[in-house]
């Protein structure tokens, strides 16, 4: 349903993304992985049409750059980490913006489908009781849930995520990723996301694309891509050993607790 063909992004002399191609099919959750500066967020930006690029991005066979903004927004939604509030909109007003691409005319009243879409999104994210709250009063995690609700209200088939759970506490991370997993299990939906945490990528991704210095190093099913050897090559360290080391610390701790109790 989504295809990127030789996507290249240049900032002046620097090539941030170098001729990357991939395709995304319904039911897939494709994780873009790689160290800082690998070009993951830039690639997401190009697919979202917010960054100028060379090459082609096709949506159901049609060139995405030729689509009207509203047409595109009905197919594809984006959740990024950069959502800072300036004015005191209510939660409901933010979610309502997700229906922008479906409006008819300038003065058109809110159709029933909009109302239902908004209610469903609020219910999915557990925000019904927050609907009249000002977004200025929300924590970072609650705010991210509001924008996730906006994205659900947009009712797209493809969801792009740019580190959606960055800076969030673990329970929020788990909650947000759980919601997205539930969403992508519906027929005809797919997710493309940047996740820094490789264990999250492994847990939730069906497929992965490993990037290094703007290039694609490997792509395919998650387990085949995020291998010890590939990661060592890209991160220039033994990621597996490091992570296992981290986990073993936890095991030691829990055993310690176990002994004491």
């Amino acid at each position: 349903m989504l295809q990127a063909q030789n996507v290249t992004v240049r900032y002046g002399d620097k090539t941030a993304v170098d001729s990357v191609s991939f395709s995304l099919e319904p039911g897939q959750w494709l994780m873009l992985a790689g160290p800082n500066g690998a070009g993951k967020s830039t690639l997401i930006g190009a697919v979202a049409q917010s960054v100028a690029y060379e090459g082609r991005v096709l949506l159901d066979g049609k060139d995405m750059s030729a689509l009207r903004s509203a047409q595109r927004a009905r197919q594809m939604a984006v959740l990024s980490q950069r959502n800072a509030a300036q004015y005191g909109y209510t939660v409901e007003e933010i979610v309502q913006l997700g229906r922008y691409a479906y409006r008819r005319g300038f003065l058109g009243r809110e159709p029933d489908a909009d109302r239902q879409g908004i209610e469903r999104a609020l219910a999915l994210t557990g925000l019904q009781e927050y609907r009249r709250r000002s977004i200025l009063d929300l924590s970072g995690g609650e705010m991210q849930r509001v924008f996730l609700a906006q994205v659900f209200a947009q009712d797209p088939n493809i969801l792009l995520l740019d580190e959606p759970a960055n800076h969030l506490d673990l329970p929020y991370q788990q909650h947000i990723f759980g919601l997205i997993r539930e969403w992508v299990s519906q027929p005809g939906k797919a997710v493309l996301s940047v996740v820094h945490d490789l264990s999250l990528a492994k847990k939730y991704g069906t497929h992965a694309l490993l990037m290094h210095r703007g290039r694609c190093v490997a792509q395919g099913e998650t387990d085949a891509v995020l291998t010890r050897e590939n990661l060592r090559q890209v991160y220039e360290m033994d990621v597996y050993a490091w992570m296992r080391g981290l986990l073993s610390q936890w095991r030691d701790n829990s055993e310690e607790f176990g002994v004491r109790s």
Binding site: S50, R68, R72, R82, A84, A85, I94, G98, A101
Partner: peptide, 20 residues
């Protein structure tokens, strides 16, 4: 409506389908 989208964020406006 477009102004609401811009007031929330220009990037957000682009993503919800405003011809920014």
């Amino acid at each position: 409506r477009e102004l609401n989208a811009f007031a929330v964020g220009e990037e957000n406006a682009l993503h919800v389908g405003v011809n920014v």
